[in-house]
């Protein structure tokens, strides 16, 4: 079955006003979603700015990532199985990330 990547974008400000109890409820929802049978893999990215490497005048140069310029940052990803885009989207609609104000980008892994 084809693989789809779910790219999870976060806005850290969304979490500022939640109580510990609400944070734990959110955590439990994320953990439950991660148990879905069609999930292949998932990873969290380190909460730092990362590096961006571009070629400048033929020379590769690394700079700090775009963290400070955008409110939403790529925070992690999932790989899931789905027959097609429709199913991939359908399977993602109940991801708690959406409930907590995040954004999810769905991309098919080419050739999978």
């Amino acid at each position: 079955m084809p693989h789809y990547m779910l790219l999870l974008y976060d806005n850290p400000a969304n979490w500022q006003n939640l109580s510990p109890e609400e944070m734990q409820q959110a955590l439990e929802k994320y953990m439950a979603w991660t148990q879905k049978p069609f999930r292949v893999d998932s990873k969290r990215l380190a909460p730092d700015v990362g590096r961006v490497i571009r070629s400048q005048g033929g020379q590769p140069r690394a700079t700090d990532g775009p963290y400070s310029e955008t409110k939403e940052v790529l925070g992690g990803y999932y790989t899931i199985e789905a027959a097609n885009y429709d199913e991939a989207v359908q399977r993602t609609l109940d991801h708690p990330h959406l409930e907590y104000g995040g954004t999810i980008e769905v991309r098919q892994v080419y050739g999978s």
Binding site: P12, W15, M23, L27, Y30, S42, R44, P47
Partner: peptide, 15 residues
């Protein structure tokens, strides 16, 4: 402490 709980929320579902 808020940041710590967020860190747990981001890490524990995967690890």
């Amino acid at each position: 402490v808020q940041e710590t709980m967020l860190r747990a929320l981001q890490t524990w579902p995967h690890q």
